[in-house]
Amino acid sequence: MKDSPGVVDLLGVLAYAELSAFARMAEDAATLAPSLGDRAALSELAAAEYSHFRLLRDRLAELGADPEQAMAPFAAALDAWHARTKPSDWLQALVKAYVGDAIALDFYREAARHLDPEIAKLVDEVLVDEGRSEFAVARVRALVEAEPPAGGRVALWARRLVGEALSQAQQVAAARPELARLLVERAGGEQADISRLFATLTEAHNKRMAAMGL
């Protein structure tokens, strides 16, 4: 299975995405959460991200790949994404936790659907919601209802997140030909189909925004 084109790249980028999401959520919980309950809730989500990282790390090792080497090509791009989208307050942190990471991860989930069912199942397992939607949606709705002008500001923030996430995913795929090939094959190899793939990702983002009332 290690020899399947793109598998190690896909698991490597997802492993680093989960590891960096864990670190970012833990930091946001410690520095931005307005209450101990919020800190605990976001910390639980961070712990889930780390559990997902461990699953991916272990599968890479089972495939005979070095997990650190598999993650290394993606560290700079994902670190840059987090630096460009660092939330400045709790509301932004919630929106990023829900929609910011999700659209990039949707991108990789689509790539996995072309692979062996066991790999696709693993990817679906590590990208499971883990209660993130309920946690973020309820709090964002409450915050926006309490301060309506905040809705417009955070909607602009979310649009920036989706642009940055899609750009990051495209850059990663362009830099790793085998990973890019997974997406091309998944989309039928046609530019129009690839465009439809991105339209599907954007539609999923819009549904998440609507769920938050934005």
Results as ranks from 00 to 15, higher is better:
K2F: 07
D3G: 12
S4K: 08
P5V: 05
P5E: 04
L10K: 06
L11N: 04
G12L: 01
G12I: 04
L14N: 04
Y16K: 10
A17Y: 08
L19Q: 13
S20L: 15
A21M: 02
A26H: 10
E27Y: 03
A30P: 04
L36Y: 10
R39K: 10
R39M: 13
A40P: 02
S43D: 10
A48S: 12
E49N: 01
S51T: 11
H52Q: 07
H52E: 08
F53Y: 14
L56M: 10
R57L: 11
D58T: 07
R59D: 13
L60I: 08
L60W: 03
L63S: 08
G64Y: 04
A65M: 05
A65R: 01
D66P: 08
D66S: 12
M71R: 05
A72Q: 13
A72I: 09
F74I: 01
F74N: 01
A77Q: 12
L78M: 08
L78N: 05
D79V: 13
A80H: 11
W81S: 05
W81L: 15
T85M: 04
T85Y: 06
K86E: 15
P87I: 05
S88H: 09
L94V: 00
L94T: 05
K96Y: 07
K96E: 09
Y98M: 11
V99N: 07
I103R: 07
L105F: 12
D106K: 05
D106P: 00
R109N: 08
A112V: 04
A112L: 02
R113L: 13
R113D: 09
D116S: 00
D116V: 04
E118C: 03
I119E: 05
A120P: 03
A120C: 09
E125A: 15
E125T: 15
V126N: 08
V128Q: 15
D129P: 03
E130D: 15
E130Q: 12
R132M: 11
R132I: 11
R132T: 14
A136W: 00
V137M: 08
V137W: 12
R139P: 00
R139N: 03
V140A: 13
R141P: 02
A142I: 10
L143T: 11
V144H: 01
A146C: 06
G151R: 02
G152Y: 01
R153P: 03
A155I: 00
A158S: 05
L161M: 03
V162Q: 09
G163P: 09
S167G: 15
Q171D: 15
A174L: 11
A174P: 02
R176A: 14
R176T: 09
P177W: 08
A180F: 06
A180M: 07
R181H: 12
V184F: 08
E185T: 09
R186D: 07
R186A: 11
Q191D: 11
Q191V: 14
Q191H: 06
A192Y: 09
A192R: 10
S195D: 15
S195R: 11
L197H: 04
L197W: 05
T202A: 09
E203K: 11
K207F: 06
K207T: 05
K207P: 05
R208S: 08
A210E: 12
G213L: 10
L214V: 00
L214G: 00
